[in-house]
Amino acid sequence: MGDEQRDMPVTSADGTRLAVRRRGRGPAVVLVHGSAGGLDSWDPVVPHLDEDYELWVYARRGYQPSDPGRRSKTYADDVSDLEAVIAATGGPAHVVGGSYGAVVTLHAALRLETMNKIALFEPPLFTSGTDALKPYRDLLDAGDVPGAIRLFAERVARVPAEILAAFDGQGDPAEAAGSLHDLEAMAADRPDLGRWADVSLPTLIIQGGETWAPMPATMDALAEAMPKATRVVLPGQSHFATHTAPQQFAAEVRRFLA
């Protein structure tokens, strides 16, 4: 096991306070979580990397105990927050993004000069310009948190019907509020995969071999836009691979960063 973890606050450029956790030793790696996540999102993966890397995880704005932010969120806000965390590491740093966090990482790769290598796990680029923001917000305003969570799973994450039942009755208001802020950024984004061709950083694209549509086609399109990127498919895994196969996931990240 790496060095004991340390929790600390980091303040973004607009004054938003982010809850940050550091653990391990070695080159700095910042881990960016997906929707409905938080400080514990990377817990299964961290023990497989912290012997050789100093890992920095943080709760993105909108997710407790970080601040919610002062306005409707955009990816530019997420990039600014990531920039602040990288600065706290002493920079530059490698960045690993999962799901929504992988989209943040892509946006950051076009703007920041303090990133080394980036690893992207199934960025849901098909959510750009989503029309789910208003109905999701309406459900939250009505107090129907389980309904909002199911809507997110069905209309945004495109979770298959046979898996949707697992989301019934879920109702964490804090996570639901965080997903609302993510939807604000998704709705304001544009579905232009060609822009990622301008990413010049060494890039690893990771996907699960069993992840449902439209993720496989989306990863095909991203790989086509980024022909120099390295691509890895985890056999038998899905969008939950960081929890169902954390050692396998970490091994691919370690191999890429080495």
Rank of each mutant, 00 (worst) to 15 (best):
L125H: 09
Q170S: 01
A197W: 07
S200W: 04
A93G: 07
G91T: 07
D198T: 06
A132Y: 14
T211N: 07
R150H: 08
M186E: 02
G143H: 11
A88T: 05
P173K: 02
V145T: 00
Y136T: 04
L183V: 01
A213M: 06
A153M: 10
H181K: 00
L183K: 01
V95Y: 05
A177M: 04
A188G: 00
G98Q: 13
I163V: 09
W196V: 01
A132H: 09
G143W: 14
S128C: 14
A84D: 07
T127I: 15
W196Q: 02
R155S: 04
D138L: 14
A88D: 06
P124S: 13
V103M: 13
H94G: 10
P135W: 07
P160R: 01
H94E: 08
D189H: 12
D138Y: 14
A102Y: 12
G143F: 12
V199F: 08
K117A: 15
A142T: 15
H94K: 07
G98V: 15
D198Y: 07
T89D: 07
L110A: 11
T203C: 06
D131R: 07
W212R: 05
W212A: 11
A197M: 08
G101F: 10
L193H: 09
G91C: 11
V159K: 06
A142D: 15
L204T: 01
A185M: 03
A176E: 03
D182A: 00
F152D: 04
Y100Q: 12
F152E: 05
A213L: 05
K117W: 09
I163S: 11
V96T: 11
V156C: 01
L180W: 03
F167I: 08
D198P: 05
I205R: 12
M115Y: 13
L204H: 03
T114M: 14
L151K: 04
P92C: 11
S99M: 08
V159N: 06
F121D: 11
G129C: 10
Q207S: 14
A177N: 02
Q170V: 02
A185L: 00
R111I: 14
A102K: 06
I118G: 14
A108W: 11
L193F: 13
P160Q: 00
G171H: 01
Y136S: 06
H94L: 10
L120R: 09
I206G: 13
A157Y: 05
E210W: 05
V104A: 08
Q170T: 00
G90S: 08
T211R: 03
L112W: 10
L201V: 02
P124E: 12
L133K: 04
P135L: 05
L139P: 05
I206R: 08
A165S: 09
